[in-house]
């Protein structure tokens, strides 16, 4: 296990380096003179020269990359071209909102997806199974920004029962200490704020959870069916155990191992999906920020946020693999 953990962890280093090369090259994908594109047509030549020098565009490529990696390692993701703020500071300030949304979505996806998958596998080929499979297939086919709009329209505009944007109502005064609004409100025992925050969370979380939910349900079904066909399940049944006991005590735990990997893989989808979901619901996380930065041609933010998200995905995948090896002693590194 320790050998596997060390070797698997080491594979992260070249991948992160490769990711940094790709993100670094983003700036060179900008057609023409990046400095001029960033500043727009009316920029003075002095200003363009200043930005060029600041970006290091006048140096050879390998030097530029070296400087870039050096800065990133020291936690410097550049500065916003439009507002001049350090990218990392803004990123960390906005990240809690995205974490809150993504956590709610994945919890929702697991809490609904696994039972649906289990029901689907246990009552295989029944009407429950057919409906669940059709629902899962619809879920993976869903443009989540469209679903978000429909939810906002139906619950927010038509029924007027849930808010359609932002994290808190405009009338709610609250000074969060960590930007995790729900956590802060719960810790401070501020129940009205907590209720308001949760009401704002429901629709975006539901929209963001759709695809992971469908994927988890499909994976749980396939994995459980596979496990249920094994010999040791036949033995358990032959001992006279009830079907519930066989499924819950013997099959489900083993069937959930592949599901764990799928859940880990969803983190990337959640962070990318947040760009769409946050845009619909004016949710002030990094997704909305990336969207606004694209519109404002604030390339440093797009670059910084992409690197940040990719790094998180790489680390989460590592953690998932390590966790998998921890709970499944059969895994060996080869």
């Amino acid at each position: 296990m320790r050998r596997y953990a060390v070797q698997r962890s080491l594979t992260v280093i070249p991948v992160l380096l490769g990711v940094s090369v790709l993100v670094f090259s983003f700036i060179h994908l900008i057609p023409g003179d990046p400095a001029l594109t960033m500043l727009g047509e009316r920029a003075t030549p002095e200003k363009v020269a200043e930005v060029r020098a600041h970006l290091g565009l006048d140096r050879p490529l390998w030097q530029q990359y070296g400087i870039y990696v050096g800065k990133v390692v020291r936690g410097d993701l550049g500065v916003s071209i439009v507002r001049g703020d350090p990218v990392l500071t803004d990123l960390l300030r906005r990240f809690p909102a995205t974490v809150e949304l993504a956590t709610a979505a994945i919890v929702l996806a697991i809490a609904l997806g696994i039972p649906i998958g289990v029901a689907s596998a246990v009552w295989r080929n029944s009407i429950v199974d057919s409906l669940a499979r059709l629902w899962a297939l619809t879920g993976v086919s869903m443009p989540i920004f469209w679903l978000g709009l429909m939810l906002a329209w139906f619950f927010g505009v038509k029924l007027r029962v849930l808010p359609t944007g932002f994290r808190l109502g405009t009338g709610t005064a609250f000074a969060p200490s960590t930007n995790f609004v729900i956590l802060d409100a719960a810790l401070q025992g501020n129940w009205p704020v907590l209720a308001d925050a949760l009401r704002h969370l429901v629709l975006p979380a539901l929209a963001l959870a759709t695809i992971p939910l469908a994927i988890i349900a499909r994976m749980t079904r396939a994995s459980l069916l596979e496990v249920l066909s094994r010999e040791y399940i036949r033995t358990a049944e032959a001992k006279g155990l009830s079907q519930t006991a066989v499924v819950l005590r013997h099959a489900l735990w083993n069937a959930l191992l592949p599901v764990l990997t799928v859940v880990g893989l969803q983190v990337g989808h959640l962070l990318a999906g947040a760009i769409l979901t946050e845009t619909i619901f004016s949710w002030p996380g990094i997704g909305l920020w990336v969207y606004e930065s694209i519109e404002a041609r604030d390339y440093a933010i797009v670059q910084g946020a992409s690197l940040f998200i990719a790094a998180i995905v790489v680390v989460v995948n590592l953690a998932t693999d390590l966790l998998y090896a921890l709970v499944d002693p059969r895994i060996k590194y080869d």
């Binding site: 991948v15 983003f26 700036i27 900008i30 989808h269 990318a272 998200i309 990719a310 995905v313």
Partner: peptide
């Protein structure tokens, strides 16, 4: 395969968005 692993490290939607944001 290393190059493919790098591309796969990004959520596909994010990479597509970032690339188009850069090249226009």
């Amino acid at each position: 395969m290393f190059c493919m692993d790098i591309l796969l490290a990004f959520p596909a939607t994010l990479l597509a968005i970032a690339i188009v944001a850069m090249i226009g």
